[in-house]
Design a protein around this nucleic acid. Structure first.
Lengths: 214, 214
DNA sequence: TAGATTGTTAATCGATTAACAATC
DNA sequence: TAGATTGTTAATCGATTAACAATC
């Protein structure tokens, strides 16, 4: 069956939302409850879940613990993923320090850089290796996901090395459209600022005049 | 006229793509050229642009310099935006150090934190203030955009202060759905990792078995 | 003029939502 | 049983794309 791409993103939102219900000690939730918290329609919640099975009980709703488990299995976060960050600059360092990743089962096991100064040091307790060792260490450390946090110009090259090394997927922070045959998820921070700028101008048409004068 | 949301994201992509053409010294490009670079359909490029005007010449294509200017104006990046980062932790620090922001006309003019240890110091040359001064400094420094880089629990509260201070829009790095009346752009890094995990499992069904054994 | 490419229409495709029978 | 809520169908809505007349 064809699953809409937006459904996948929402699945991860449901997972978080249900986890919170679990923490609150709630046993059953309805699609209406979930929808309210996430600002969606109940029918969308039910439809999204229905792509993967029948998890609810009519008249009752969904068993929170059971649905959390099912969602973890569907998304693939019922296992720990080994992650390597390529590029130990500001962004790479911030990600290595970010506790949210491990909390969500993404374990940063290595950093890579081409700066010999950084190689051999540790960042947030994680060793920094030379990019030249990526292929060897991917096997040794069982690296499954690579984060690309290198400058634009190096991004495609690094992606190719990662793919050759046998990495299963890439989270790409560079503004480049990567050409690979493995799954890539793009995080484009500047794009978000630009979209916001557009939306601000749309919401504040009077600003346009001021800009012309600037 | 109703403009599709995906069109806005693509507008920022066109802007970058056209800038590159300009750097390469290209004078005219066709919708086919742009589409090829961005992996889109030419008719989509033309349709997207047509929401905002008639920028091309039949038989010739688009004048690169002219279209770059038009796109900058439409997106709103023909002016410098003053940005404040709230939360001077790892993420806030990484963003303050990120040169891509200024390059795209987003100027970080202040950091805010509630840790008195950090207040008064500078990060990447940018002063750190106490969150309590946000309202006052928003006026003084003409802060237009706030970046929310604080822990989940503080996010909604900070958003409300920012809105009260008169900020025009928010880039939200917390995993919380903010309730505001000003535009918000969400950047959810963990969500990207989870989406990638799902796509990796879909591309590698044999991994599912291994996980069950884990 | 002939070839190329636009801007726009209409068709298609994909995602969301309302409605409701099934059933707890 | 009566009330609640699911899972699913069909209708609606929104976005993409092919096609083509207009025109450089």
């Amino acid at each position: 069956m064809k699953i809409p791409k937006p459904t996948i993103k929402r699945l991860a939102l449901y997972y978080r939302c249900l986890n919170r219900y679990r923490e609150e000690g709630v046993n059953f939730v309805s699609s209406k409850d979930i929808a309210e918290r996430l600002n969606l329609k109940p029918s969308q919640v039910r439809k999204d879940l229905s792509y993967f099975g029948e998890f609810g009980k009519r008249g009752l709703g969904y068993n929170v613990v059971k649905l959390v488990d099912e969602l973890a299995r569907i998304i693939g976060v019922n296992k720990v993923w080994n992650v390597a960050i390529i590029g130990a600059g500001n962004l790479g360092t911030a990600l290595a320090n970010y506790p949210g990743l491990l909390k969500h089962k993404f374990k940063v096991v290595a950093l890579f850089d081409n700066d010999r100064e950084k190689v051999g040091k540790k960042i947030a307790g994680i060793p920094v290796f030379h990019v030249g060792d990526l292929i060897r260490l991917t096997q040794e450390l069982n690296i499954e996901i690579c984060v690309i946090a290198v400058p634009e110009l190096a991004a495609q090259r690094v992606a190719e090395i990662a793919e050759e090394a046998g990495v299963k997927g890439i989270v790409n922070f560079s503004p480049v459209k990567l050409r690979t045959s493995i799954p890539v998820e793009d995080v484009d921070i500047t794009l978000s600022f630009e979209t916001l700028a557009y939306n601000i101008l749309k919401a504040n048409p009077e600003m346009l005049k001021l800009i012309e004068e600037q």
